[in-house]
Computed example of a mutant assay.
Amino acid sequence: MLSVRDHMTLRLASAHYRYPARREADVHELLAMSPTLFWRHVHTLLDSPAALAAYPREVNRLRRLREQRRGARRAT
């Protein structure tokens, strides 16, 4: 079961922002979190079956992006 904060976190993480600073401002304003804590929470949620059930398209897209970044770091 996802909390309201979890839902908001996933919605903000999957939203398309033109400028990253705008997302950071929204995270701070709506969730009262730093960007580092926000992304840590997002990555925890990406491994959650409840998050996958609630937002399959968004979670799968964010998982793919995470794996691409990990692969790029391993390659260098």
Rank of each mutant, 00 (worst) to 15 (best):
L65H: 05
H41E: 09
V4D: 03
Y17K: 07
R61F: 10
A21K: 10
D47M: 02
A51V: 07
A51P: 09
V59F: 08
R23C: 13
V42R: 00
L10W: 08
Y55R: 03
A21Y: 08
V59Y: 11
L10R: 12
Y17T: 11
A25K: 11
A50T: 10
H28G: 11
A72E: 15
Y17I: 06
L12Y: 14
L52V: 06
R23S: 07
M8D: 04
V4S: 04
H41K: 10
A72H: 15
A15N: 10
V59G: 04
T36N: 10
S48E: 06
R66Y: 07
T9D: 11
L62S: 13
D26M: 05
Y55K: 06
E24T: 12
R40G: 05
T9F: 03
W39P: 06
D47K: 03
Y19A: 08
E29M: 14
R69N: 10
D6K: 01
S34K: 09
A13K: 13
R23G: 07
L12N: 11
A51G: 07
A15Q: 15
R5P: 00
S48T: 08
R63I: 05
V59S: 03
R57Q: 14
L2W: 01
T9A: 12
M8W: 09
R5D: 01
R63Q: 14
D6W: 06
S3W: 00
R64C: 06
M33Q: 12
A21T: 12
Y17V: 10
L45P: 01
L46F: 01
G71T: 03
R63F: 05
V42K: 00
L12F: 14
R61E: 02
